[in-house]
Design a binder for these strands. Structure first.
Lengths: 209, 209
DNA sequence: ACATGCATGTGCCTGATATCACAACCAGTT
DNA sequence: AACTGGTTGTGATATCAGGCACATGCATGT
């Protein structure tokens, strides 16, 4: 089944399912049906079964899915059975907040390098023990620390330059918080997080919807 | 044309177009073709023309679009020809970073209220002049300040409760940073911002893609 | 005033994505 | 051992979104 094209939306939903399943593991729920999980995630039950069907068979007919097993399987599909090393650029308010954010480490994401071009900040030691490096050292430090995913928290006009530096390492996956579209060659992947785009959606909804 | 169902993806793209157009206004570019704008935004030129066609005709054949006019029109479509009042709950690292973030005010979003249930934080005056209120006062303060959009930066287990309080005000649009799915009745809208979902996508890409 | 070049606006087609509905199948009960 | 209730897995169907390609129409130059 792995030979089919998997829709990007499916991957996103798998991630959402795993959040819900984590909650169930904490609650001690042993088994869940696609119906129950669907209600929690706000999707159609058939959608869940279809999404899972891309990767195999995980349920028991007449019963449902064993929560712990399904969570394990989904995490394995997503590649979360290992820790991922993150490098972050731009130690402003947002960058620092992300570093301190607990959800990352909880999910197996670990910051291994931090950068800023403000010489006032360079050399400062952060609460996590990380030292802020100047951006010139990005390529070297990323290689030394084994960074796999780059996080961009710079102003928009710097974002493309930073991205290009990451490409040289090469760091093949980028999480971009700057409100610009970043150009990368094939094989690389950028995910954008743009709060104001989300807010604009809400504003539209309030205005026209 | 306004009677058609507008795809949510179209609204999201309009928002992205407006970012690119803002850059062009700064650069002094007077006119842009769908091709040029498409390259900047990473979409197909026909896509842009289709998206705009939902709302009318904005271009000049043989010429393109006048940047300032198009930006104005798109902002009007999105409902950004007014300021929007935001209320934020959860003054942790992330919440504080969002308050201080410049992109919001630049786009006409203004924080008018802040809340936290930590009594150590309540009463503290923030750099913006806002005072942190206890969550019990959410309904009252939101009404007094005219909050229109709620921003949730609490831990996941508190998110649904906060959302319910917002619904009572009523604040009809929520921006949710907690990694849970929030249930709201018809007429209300939730937009989720979940970093780890995005990271999971990257992890999958690095693992399987 | 006419011809030419060029970019828009849009009908149509294609492909992808979500939903429905049913057969396959398991567990517990009679 | 057969039956029943319930849930999965999946083929078929419907819906939606994206891309092509051409006619439309404006601007410039002759």
């Amino acid at each position: 089944m792995k030979y089919l094209k998997i829709p990007a939306a499916t991957i996103t939903r798998l991630s959402i399912y795993s959040r819900a399943l984590e909650g169930m593991v904490e609650d001690g729920t042993p088994v869940v049906s696609s119906k129950t999980l669907a209600d929690l995630c706000g999707v159609n039950p058939a959608q869940i079964r279809k999404d899972l069907a891309y990767f195999g068979q995980f349920g028991v007919r007449g019963v449902g899915y064993f929560v712990k097993e399904l969570l394990f399987d989904i995490k394995k599909i997503l590649g979360l059975n290992k820790e991922w090393n993150l490098a972050i650029v731009g130690m402003g308010n947002l960058g620092c907040a992300l570093l301190a954010h607990q959800n990352f480490s909880k999910q197996g994401y670990r910051f291994v390098a931090a950068f800023d071009n403000d010489m006032m900040k360079v050399g400062r030691k952060l609460a996590t023990g990380l030292v802020i490096h100047p951006i010139d050292e990005l390529t070297k430090v990323c290689r030394d620390t084994g960074a796999e995913i780059g996080v961009i928290c710079t102003p928009p006009d710097k974002a493309q330059d930073i991205a290009s530096r990451f490409l040289e390492v090469p760091v093949k996956a980028l999480l971009n918080f700057a409100p610009v579209q970043i150009q990368v060659p094939d094989g690389f992947k950028v995910e954008n997080v743009d709060f104001t785009v989300k807010l604009d959606n809400l504003a539209y909804h309030l205005t026209a919807g």
